[in-house]
Design a protein around this nucleic acid. Sequence first.
RNA 1: GCCGAAGUGGCGGAAUUGGCAGACGCGCUAGGCUCAGGACCUAGUGACCCUAAUACGGUCUUCCGGGUUCAAAUCCCGGCUUCGGCACCA
Length: 839
Amino acid sequence: MSPRYEPKEIEPRWQQRWAEARVFSPQDDDPRPKKYVLEMFPYPSGSGLHLGHASNYTIADVIARYAWMKGFKVLHPMGWDAFGLPAEQYAIEKRIHPSQAVEENLRNFKGQLTLLGGSYDWTRELSTTDPAYYRWTQWIFLRLLERGLAYQAEVAVNWCPALGTVLANEEVIDGKSERGGHPVVRMPMRQWMLRITAYADRLLEGLDRIDWPENVKQMQREWIGRSVGAEVVFRVEGAGEFKVFTTRPDTLFGATFCVLAPEHPLVARITTDAQRATVSAYVEAAGRKSDRDRMADAKEKTGAFTGAWAVNPATGAKVPVWIADYVLATYGTGAIMAVPGHDARDWAFARAFGLPVVEVISGGDVTKAAHEGEGTLVHSGFLDGLPVEEAKARMTAWLEAKGLGTKAVRYKLRDWLFSRQRFWGEPIPVLHRADGTTVPLPDDALPVTLPEVPRYEPTGTGESPLAGVDAWVNTRDPRDGAPARRETNTMPGSAGSSWYFLRYIDPRNAAAFCDPAKERAWMPVDLYIGGTEHAVGHLLYARFWQKVLFDLGLVSTDEPFRRLFNQGMVVAATYRDAEGRVYPREAVETADGATRVKATGAPVTTTLEKMSKSKKNGVGIDEAVARYSGDAVRLAGLFLGPPDAEKEWTPNAIEGPWRFLLKAWRLLVGDEDGPGVPLTDAPATGALRKAVHRAIDGITKDMEAIAFNTAVSKLMVLLSELQGANPLPRDAAEAFVTLLAPFAPHAAEEMWAALGRAPFVSVAPWPVADPAALVDDTVTLAVQVNGKVRGDVTVAADAKEADVLAAAKGVENVRKHLEGKAIVKEIVVPKRLVNFVVR
RNA sequence: GCCGAAGUGGCGGAAUUGGCAGACGCGCUAGGCUCAGGACCUAGUGACCCUAAUACGGUCUUCCGGGUUCAAAUCCCGGCUUCGGCACCA
């Protein structure tokens, strides 16, 4: 065997040995404590994995490997989130079946992940598109249906004509589809919904019990958007009444008009004949506007007077009732009381239409702007003189006593739109019987599998392509044989990903989605790793399903992810010309401070953007591994910067880590000129021993803190210490290889073998630093005069303060700066510095 | 507009949470090796001043301006910039 570093030969060999020996497959009867380390499973797209993914997966892998070495049995599985739009789009483009597209992409992804030497338990691999898996997605749906948490409704949905489907709110950005940027319009349609709003309070409360980044918790809190206030009844003269929701019941005396959403059911009834034409025109115009247009018009207030007057229950005064599209039909009661003195939106509306503004809270100037802050109630009858908070409580109590209103809580969170008019998703396991009833299929009829169809492009009519497959659609109710049609909507991509972490625990169970004993043994996930882009989508849905399963007694914990870690994305230079065309790095050159396209000389702008194929700024994993090695790619991704920060990839980011690997290899294994440095069994002493233990101590702390960039740097420092020793003490060499193992596992295994140790260093015990080796006998302190460093002094670590001061004063350059001055203060910071304050 | 995070050499980034700013790496410079180039090895490398000197020494420097302190990248006040999230939610 050549002692040269030949990654192409050694890396596949170790990958195979790990798999054969099932090194990373935890056994249920293993008595060691468990650690469940999970990264958000990938969506296997056609473009494959680039170095941005590599960096993310390496972070999780290092954590999992470290846990093994710390003596845990570790569950670190991998699978595929393969249903949904992108796979279907890709298949349509390539004119192949989605299942075939998924299979190809999945094989490609797995191959690329393997190149990096991830410590995955591949025996637990799963795909959301596997009928054996989605059978249980459908099963959970039936439980939701039984509990009344799944229902059908005619709702205004985001219909995207280009994609031929309905999209969730978070899939729509600025009135365009998140994928593809196609226009989206509002349109009523029959849809399946999940009643996530029923869990709003519990989803909020649970956040206080989990170790997640504060910004993600905050995003979820804002998304749920809990508001406490009151519902107040306004009577309309001669036409019944309507309710408004307000968080500021204290300002009721200042409500000088009311505004209904254009879609409010009362609008037609209360509008006077004189106003009917104006109102109808406004309602119609508002209905035509997409959300996008409404947003674009947000700055200008528009509206129309209905001609109706309502009674302010506090003042008894008649107030005009308007309609305006700044009031949303879908929030609160779809109607508001307008308090222009203390609400900026109402103020703007009042100003636009010349409506009266009344001050009811002192402290501002309501003729210039709405005063939304604190103050004392004025012009408010029995509330006068009270502070805001007290006035809210007093007014709410008064309304309740008079039967004019109640305390109320409202949420921004909407129910989860759970159906898609597409082929590539889990069929919703429901039948529409000929007698007009809609019934769930019995559990033993699951899974409802997708048919093989020649055509699966969207129909564009709002119906799923499944609707056209007569043989599949027309069926019989298995209970009584009555004719029925299958539900043709499918589930959204976020269905299968809402519970997959449970399936990894018991992936082949045909009798249950997961064995309860195994579930208790492994849940919750100890560390969940993924990007912030899922902060309010996936992470909220998964928490919701988990709580439902918990309520059904099917799982042991109501929060699935104990700790969440957000890894930062990897960005790279993107080159764009004036027309917006992108160019790969090789196609541009920089000269005289300007970057131009090599071929045409056209100037390009350079921006840092997330790596992706479409921006031509990514580097494929295969490519990088072929040129360097899997270990080098791992090290480079980690060394780039802090795992939770955005990191910039440049072509030579890999050079340093690569050279480090070569140096370590040459030292411990050798090169074409011969074997590595001779070893000695005599233990390391002196400075070398200190260096080893300092590295163990520092790297261990970095591992716990997930600070891998500095851990790699400490490995580099330790290596250069080792390079100074000949012969090299075996214990020092072994410590280095053990510390290296989570980061560069293939090379570490090979070095471990070269040191004569039996495999596998990947699961060898993590070394422990000897505290005695960390203390120094002497310390060097900086000596400052008036805060400026003038020299340094080396003293015994346990030197007395007086001796330290004496020694510091003896330093020549310090003496020069002290000469002729009076010392007014002497500061000694043990082991750090001495500071003389002089005058 | 509101909320949150961050601004440190030519570049990516360190800094025990108030104690020698710039670890480690890239790049660059010089030397070695080589027919040569690459690779590799060794050394140097924040800016400015003093200097024959890369010695000795000095001044400045963590986005900008103030402040607290013996001491500030770190704490406080004001401002600027960048990046995320929300965006008529009453």
